[in-house]
């Protein structure tokens, strides 16, 4: 049972593979699309990736804690519908702020409901959040049966075109996330998170408040889903109860590409951030490579399968050699 260097590296830096993939994808994309680093293109890409990125960060935290949250898309949809129906295209800025605040509360509440079922009633995370996901999506549909509504144009434009420090807005958001994460990781809560996800029994025996930690991961995920809902609303400027439905699976894919283990206890925030961008750029690569329309979906799916399986395949080859 000797550890290979690759294994140790991967264990110490779960996002290492994500980083390698991230760099490769950026290089390929830059070759296919020479203007990739122009501010406008960069901003165009990042503003589209940001909603999923926020979702993937929340998802990753739940997964580190040993769970999974497949209700995040539903929560994002609720937030989108709340903002689109309550603020409106001609709403005031005060309303906008008020409902952003309410949205965040709603996200925390939705996450707390998940956390209650999973941490307190000890239900299976995947089944619980599958069920609550339907409830949240249904509630979004109830709020806004027909696509429509919206937020003030100025708000959408702010999201779409603001470039602080000459960089896309998303970069500032990422910086804030990374900073907060660095802080969280340096606290006891950070340690608890990894302990609970790594081996919940052992953590319990060590007097780690396991239930509380599990509960909090879902609250964080709900909050991140709310931020994601706000971002997607600002991107599209309008309401659609279906808007988050496709994002849940993508958030899990992004987290896993980012080195977050489905089994818990492994991962971070840099991983899913790179994972999301990688996932988004894959779409660009497929688009710019001039591959035939009929093969686009297959090509993209293959890249994702390879990205997900590659760390395992590398391990396999390393073991074969020994």
């Amino acid at each position: 049972m000797k550890k290979t260097t690759w294994n140790t590296l991967m264990a110490r830096h779960p996002a290492l593979f994500a980083l390698i993939l991230f760099v490769i994808i950026i290089i390929i994309n830059a070759i296919l699309q020479p203007g990739l680093f122009a501010l406008e293109t960069l901003n165009n890409n990042m503003r589209v990736f940001l909603p999923l990125l926020l979702l993937a960060v929340g998802q990753s935290i739940v997964m580190i804690g040993g769970g999974i949250d497949i209700s995040v898309g539903g929560i994002a949809s609720i937030i989108n519908c709340v903002l689109a129906t309550q603020v409106g295209l001609n709403g005031s800025m005060e309303d906008m702020w008020k409902f952003i605040f309410i949205s965040l509360l709603a996200g925390v509440l939705a996450g707390a409901i998940n956390g209650f079922f999973i941490a307190v009633l000890r239900l299976q995370p995947i089944i619980t959040t599958y069920a609550t996901g339907f409830i949240y999506a249904g509630f979004a549909l109830f709020l806004l049966p027909n696509p429509g509504g919206g937020i003030p144009r100025a708000v959408a434009d702010f999201y779409r075109t603001t470039t602080p420090f000459g960089l896309p807005l998303a970069f500032s958001v990422i910086a804030v996330i990374v900073l907060i994460w660095w802080y969280v990781r340096s606290t006891r809560f950070g340690r608890y998170l990894y302990a609970v996800g790594g081996k919940a029994d052992a953590a319990y025996q060590t007097a780690v408040p396991v239930n509380w930690v599990v509960f909090s991961t879902y609250v964080i995920s709900g909050l991140m889903a709310a931020f994601s809902g706000i971002a997607i609303t600002m991107l599209s400027g309008s309401g659609n109860a279906e808007i988050g439905s496709g994002m849940t699976l993508n958030s899990i894919t992004a987290a896993v590409i980012g080195g977050t283990a489905m089994s818990g206890g492994v991962g971070g925030v840099a991983g899913p951030i790179m994972g999301t961008i990688t996932l988004g750029l894959m779409q660009n690569i497929v688009s710019f490579s001039g591959i035939s329309t009929w093969w686009e979906t297959l090509a993209k799916a293959l890249i994702i399968v390879v990205a997900l399986a590659a760390p395992g395949i590398i391990n396999l080859f390393i073991r074969e050699k020994k």
Binding site: T187, R188, Y194, G198, A203, Q205, T206
Partner: peptide, 27 residues
Amino acid sequence: ELSLIPNMTVAENIWLTQEPRNILGII
């Protein structure tokens, strides 16, 4: 059966729940 978390380090395991912290809560 040991109460250690495999993915965490020796120090992290030994001090889990008893980590010395500064006022900001940073370990």
